[in-house]
Amino acid sequence: MGKKVYNLPLGGGSMKVKVKLFTTLREGRGKELMVELEEGDTPQKVIDILNIKKEDVAILLINGRSAEFDAKLAEGDVLSLFPPVGGG
């Protein structure tokens, strides 16, 4: 896992998506990032940019709703990424 704290924003496209990271995914990346993407980009693209392994993401939400890695993101979306969490 990279130790670098990214300078915002990342990506360089015209569509802005807010990415929220939790627990161990925050290490070296911070809590919240703004990513600039191209039309049609997906959460997979986001984790590639952030150097996050797919298997480290157990729960992926777009605007609070469960979603897949190949979903199409839209301007203003909030993408939340979690490693496995549980409790009760």
Binding site: T23, T24, A58, P83, P84, V85, G86, G87, G88
Partner: peptide
């Protein structure tokens, strides 16, 4: 991931 890492590292408040 939950019992091996999430709960040990952050406790139940990880939720």
């Amino acid at each position: 991931g939950v019992t091996g890492e999430g709960l040990p590292t952050y406790g139940t408040a990880v939720l």
